[in-house]
Amino acid sequence: MKVIFLKDVKGMGKKGEIKNVADGYANNFLFKQGLAIEATPANLKALE
């Protein structure tokens, strides 16, 4: 799943980066902790 990092995550990515991560990792950790959001077309447009 493609995500946009909202904060730096050690060993994974930096704020503003777009990366592919495992679905479970994104849903169970990154999204719940507020560290990333899904890289949807609307979210990608908002990032620009």
Rank of each mutant, 00 (worst) to 15 (best):
L47F: 14
L44H: 05
E48H: 13
F29G: 04
A39W: 11
F31M: 08
K45N: 10
F29Y: 11
M1N: 04
F29D: 09
N28D: 14
Y25N: 05
E48K: 08
K45T: 10
N27L: 15
K14I: 10
K45W: 04
F31I: 14
V3T: 01
K14W: 07
G34V: 03
E38M: 07
G13E: 01
L6K: 02
G34C: 12
N43K: 04
N27E: 15
A39R: 00
G34N: 09
I4V: 11
G24E: 15
N20H: 15
A36V: 08
A46P: 06
P41H: 09
I37A: 05
L6R: 03
P41E: 14
N43M: 07
N20Y: 15
L30Q: 01
T40M: 03
L6S: 02
K19A: 14
K10A: 13
D23G: 11
K7R: 13
L6T: 09
V9P: 00
I18E: 03
K14S: 11
M1D: 01
G16C: 08
N43E: 06
K19D: 04
M12W: 12
D8Q: 03
F5D: 00
I37F: 04
D23T: 15
N43R: 06
N43D: 06
L44C: 11
P41M: 10
L6F: 02
G11N: 10
D23K: 14
K19C: 08
K32T: 13
K19M: 13
E38I: 06
A36N: 01
K32A: 15
K15N: 04
A39C: 10
L35N: 02
G24N: 15
N27V: 15
M12S: 08
K10C: 13
G16V: 00
K10W: 14
L30E: 02
N20A: 14
V9K: 03
T40W: 03
P41S: 11
K45M: 13
L47Q: 08
G11Y: 07
Y25Q: 07
D8C: 07
L44D: 05
F5K: 00
M1R: 10
L47A: 10
K15S: 07
L35P: 00
Y25P: 08
N43V: 09
K19T: 08
G13W: 10
F5L: 08
F5S: 01
A39G: 05
L35R: 02
K15H: 05
V21K: 01
I37C: 07
A42S: 10
G16T: 02
D23S: 15
N28F: 07
A42V: 09
L47Y: 14
P41D: 13
Y25A: 09
L30Y: 02
L47V: 07
I37N: 02
K15R: 12
V21A: 02
A46Y: 11
N27S: 10
M1H: 05
T40K: 03
A46S: 14
T40S: 09
L35D: 04
K7Y: 13
P41G: 09
L35V: 08
G24R: 11
A42I: 11
V21L: 07
